[in-house]
């Protein structure tokens, strides 16, 4: 013990006085722990890193949410088949040229389980193809040739309603060679075979291939497909099935 008055003063000095002048070091009172607080520049770097990480996580989860679309109506399950209708087949159009082919009344597509009566479709006020009021029936465009007559008969149906599948939900699953039966008003059947199933952006709808002239008896089935645009409330594409009368 020193008796020097100056030494007494020194005795009461905290032993880490020199450290106090460096603000980067602090003492946590009550704990026998010392935490070294990093410098401002390092803190800023860390802050930027945290900010970037936060933004990154937000972006990644948002992309994840948008891409992880869940498809409640996945088409994997084997579609219910419908039995092929029974009845006498309609005559080839060249033989029937003298008398008019009867109007279509019923459509059966066994491969995808479609069985529906056919309503008549006209045009909307803007000149587009009218669509059936309900999504449970298909319609024949009555300004197109009758199914079984020479030319391309056009039948349209909804792919879905606001809540679930429509009559042509599985249309895109048709394959080349699948049969399509159209019952005519006289009870006879016009039987078609699928040539192709194609999808087109509505902006590039193949008008002449669907509604244009054809020298043989053809059938075109139309529904929606592709990406759904929630803003417009409509699909961006049309799915078209091309079929030819078989005799």
């Amino acid at each position: 013990m020193t008796t020097d008055p100056a030494g007494l003063e020194r005795h009461h000095e905290p032993p880490y006085l020199a450290d106090v002048q460096v603000p980067a070091r602090a003492r946590v009172p009550g704990l026998a722990l010392r935490i070294r607080v990093p410098g401002r520049k390092v803190q800023r770097l860390l802050a930027v890193a945290v900010l970037a990480m936060g933004l990154g996580i937000t972006a990644a989860t948002t992309v994840g949410l948008l891409s992880a679309n869940h498809d409640r109506y996945a088409l994997d399950a084997a579609p219910a088949r419908a039995p092929a209708p029974q009845g006498q087949w309609a005559a080839a159009p060249s033989e029937a040229a003298a008398q008019r082919v009867p109007a279509p009344v019923f459509l059966t597509i066994p491969a995808i389980g479609v069985r529906t009566r056919l309503i008549r479709l006209g045009l909307t006020r803007s000149g587009a193809l009218q669509v059936p009021r309900t999504t449970a029936v298909a319609g024949w465009y009555s300004d197109s040739p009758r199914p079984g007559a020479i030319g391309s008969a056009v039948i349209g149906g909804h792919v879905d309603s606001y809540v679930g599948p429509g009559i042509f939900f599985r249309l895109r699953l048709l394959h080349r060679g699948d049969r399509i039966y159209v019952r005519q008003a006289n009870g006879r059947l016009a039987v078609f075979r699928v040539n192709a199933v194609r999808r087109y952006l509505k902006a590039r709808f193949p008008t002449s291939e669907v509604y244009g002239p054809a020298p043989t008896a053809q059938l075109r089935l139309i529904t929606c497909g592709g990406t759904f645009d929630p803003a417009r409330g409509s699909y961006l594409s049309n799915v078209i099935v091309y079929a030819t009368l078989t005799t």
Binding site: A128, Y141, H158, V159, D160, S161, A214
Partner: peptide, 21 residues
Amino acid sequence: GAASKVQPAGGAAMGFGGTAP
């Protein structure tokens, strides 16, 4: 050969999106 009497404009609005992913 035969064609539709009137060719409708553009595509057909055949869906409401109920089954869209």
